[in-house]
Nucleic acid binder design. Structure first.
Lengths: 207, 207
DNA sequence: AAATGTGAAGTTGTTCACAGCT
DNA sequence: AGCTGTGAACAACTTCACATTT
């Protein structure tokens, strides 16, 4: 399986398919055609089929796909069958916001540690988690075998913190800092910049 | 200026360039070559130059670009020179999180209203904003001439709320609900799905 | 000499057309 | 007959090569 040749966008679409399949499953639907699933996912049916062939053959000609089976296959591929431990570094406004957002837990990710250069700070209400000092990172990452980190530190320290995390064995970063991180090839970075998304929309508003 | 032909990705990169230029400006640098700016933005210099030609000619051959001038040009293009009013609909976990995140304000967006089907709910601490009922939307959108909305409602009501917003004159949506919204061509939707970003990373962790 | 701007070439990603199963 | 799987055609985007300007 030569993963290098698989378009990054195809992997994203896998997540979309996965969500659609779960909905179908909840509605008691057992079989679905590429046509129907593609429409639900907002793509062309040929694209859905092509995306799946990157990984193998999952359908039955003349019939379609088994919803449960395909759903499982995709979870397997994405590695979301088991709970994935995640640390979050940088507990400013955004970091605190993400901690209070319980959406990650629902989707199979467990935040096993929150870190900041100013530890022990107040976290509002229902958040039971303690903000730990940066020098506690090695212990936590080691204990939970953490491969994934959410980066919410200010832009000027983002690179430094990223380096530290990578050295400790983290291989995937969800980066909210508005800078371009430079990392080794084997490290995956996904950037999310909320302000930039709005800025982008802003372009399309002007007629 | 035929905007239809400009790649969506080029618009995103404009935001990146804009941020790099601001940093240069803050460091008192007046002139920059495509080579240097591109490196800061994490792209090839030819791509930067090509992106800019979609909009005109901004550089001086043999010299480079005037930092201030190019920065202004891009702000103009993106429509971020003036404060853009935004409403946020759906004040659950994520909506509350985004309200507490002050990053938008810093980047030229003003949240002029927070709405939820269950209005008047408690907002923690420093947040002065009141959560209003959905039927107050028309008045606020009208008063502030709101063109942009952040959508944080649950997936099953997202389409309905989107329709309502569009009917009221909103033309750009930042959608956090994990569903594919169907909207008229003239409406722009940017989707952000935090759980999906983690899921995507998860794929790359498995060797 | 240095660096932009751009048509042409190359690469990547998407869609078509249809062969091949069930 | 119906629907998947896929090589080939197409479209979109990126990079190259170099002419052009200061």
């Amino acid at each position: 399986m030569l993963r290098t040749e698989i378009p990054r966008k195809a992997i994203y679409r896998l997540s979309v398919y996965s969500r659609c399949l779960r909905r179908l499953e909840n509605n008691g639907i057992h079989t679905v055609s590429s046509e129907v699933l593609a429409k639900a996912a907002g793509v062309k049916s040929t694209q859905l089929r092509k995306d799946l062939t990157y990984f193998g053959q999952f359908g039955t000609r003349g019939l379609g796909y088994d919803v449960r089976q395909l759903s499982e296959m995709i979870s397997e591929l994405l590695g979301t069958k088991s709970l994935q431990p995640v640390v979050i570094v940088g507990i400013g406004n955004l970091g605190r916001a993400l901690l209070s957002y319980r959406g990650f837990e629902r989707e199979g990710f467990e935040i096993v540690g929150a870190f900041d250069s100013r530890p022990g700070q107040y976290l509002p209400g229902d958040m039971s988690m303690e903000v730990q000092a940066m020098d506690k990172l090695p212990k936590v990452i080691d204990k939970h075998v953490v491969k994934m980190a959410i980066l919410c530190v200010p832009p000027n320290s983002a690179q430094e913190v990223a380096n530290k995390l990578i050295k400790l064995g983290v291989v995937a970063l969800l980066n909210f800092a508005p800078i371009v991180l430079s990392v080794p090839d084997e490290i995956t970075v996904n950037n999310v910049n909320l302000a930039m998304e709005l800025e982008n929309l802003s372009y399309f508003i002007n007629e």
